[in-house]
Design a protein around this nucleic acid. Sequence first.
DNA 1: CGTTGTGCAATGGACAGACCATTGATGCAT
DNA 2: ATGCATCAATGGTCTGTCCATTGCACAACG
Lengths: 283, 283
Amino acid sequence: MSRKTTTVATKSRARKSPRRQVTAETAAKDRSQPQFAPIRTKRVFEEICEQVRREMATGSLRPGDKLPPERELATKLGVSRAAVREALRSLEIAGVVGLQKGARGGAFILKGDPDLVTQSIRDMFHLGRISLDNLTEARTLVMQLAIQLACERIRPTTIAALERNVDRLTTLPTTGKASERVAMSAEFYRLISQATDNTVLQMIIEALTEIVLQQVVQSNIEFFPNLIVHRRRLVEYIASGRIEDAKKEMTDHLQRLRRHLMRAERTATEGKSARTLTEETSH
Amino acid sequence: MSRKTTTVATKSRARKSPRRQVTAETAAKDRSQPQFAPIRTKRVFEEICEQVRREMATGSLRPGDKLPPERELATKLGVSRAAVREALRSLEIAGVVGLQKGARGGAFILKGDPDLVTQSIRDMFHLGRISLDNLTEARTLVMQLAIQLACERIRPTTIAALERNVDRLTTLPTTGKASERVAMSAEFYRLISQATDNTVLQMIIEALTEIVLQQVVQSNIEFFPNLIVHRRRLVEYIASGRIEDAKKEMTDHLQRLRRHLMRAERTATEGKSARTLTEETSH
DNA sequence: CGTTGTGCAATGGACAGACCATTGATGCAT
DNA sequence: ATGCATCAATGGTCTGTCCATTGCACAACG
């Protein structure tokens, strides 16, 4: 037995193997305490990530700080560089660190990327964890809050920006170029969300808006003829502090959009289900 | 010409090298158009991630589906296994896929993990992108929405669960065991959020609540003596459909908590700034 | 003296090949 | 049937190697 284990003990891999052995051996020796520990099968890169996150939470690592180079981290932690890379990769995906090549390069702690909130919610949506119905409803509701706050806190420059936004919308053709119109809408909502002076609401609105607008593009729903009129009225209400009117204007529009999207989704799924049906019958 | 390009074309690294050459060669020959394209330097694993996400968005990959084994993917895509692993790692962190060892193992498309929304927002908070003030304000506002919906949609079983939750809270000691009380609070808010029947709101509330409650634990603020009274009253309002009363009860409590947390934060940062000051003077 | 280019070292990105641990299936022995 | 040993598939990890990018120091040149 275990000629294998003893030989590997001399190798650098020794760090890992003992862990698994220990659970077995202590369970045998330490009869007084059957332990049944959760059998630490955490992957090494997870351990590394946690260490970094711990340092972050305690303030030892702050945005702008630089982590040691991959090779150095690997030797320090006694793991392979590949493991370190996977850890850095996962931290990078989480938006915690950014990697830079070249001399003076390395892994730097970032300030955090609000886009990741959007990304994670978008994944939920694409994976079917979030329904279009829930999404549009939540957006309608949250925008009510935003309008409320925006009316109270908006600054003249932002109002001017909103007006410019609507003006530019009038210059766009009403057919085709859906992506451009949608980009204008995205900015419109972004301006309102920024007026709330609350970064959390901004992130939430940014996420919901982006996902919904993407659906708008894909669903090919027609351009709302009165959209410009509604927008202009909304801006006017916000500028003059008519909170309730602004709320109603916003809610009405979003609910209208919601109905349109739901109808589009229904027809789309009907088409798809019909298609998949034929596919299934064909093979 | 291009003995290099033809030779490397046989190797798997061909995807990358030609790119850089082209920019140089065409710039020399094709004088009429200096092009100077942005030189696409996307990393391999990002490309892989995008491919998977594309398949997801188009519906070719659905939750439960299994991706090919790492080795097979690597050869199919003509990249190394390490690159594939980094891609899978990033998708795993994003909660899109889950990896399972052993025979019949592999990478499976998941349904999506709402916890990742929490994680990303938590990172924003820890990295200073979100202030405690904004966080608690947003939570207060969003809970208003939740109460509104909950009053309209809650079911008797959920009301009963809320009552049980408050009952259990009375059995806990009012000192120490902050983590237990906080866990009860977390469940309390989760029940309310579930009553909204809107998964998006659920996720948002889950995230904000968890982060705030963690701050509660760390800030060592004292137990609110009237908490139980407030909770019981709130449940009563919800059960009897007194929306405005319920909203006010909730808002009042959250604003009270908000003030406490802000005060705790202020004293904490004062202490910390004093400490860092001494540290800086010492070295 | 300043400018420019050139080489060098540091560092992330990627690859190849190997070995181990886990897991399920398969077949053999009891 | 039951249990045990073996095997193959697959993720997890390690080692070693090479390449591309980047910044810097230093030499060459005007």
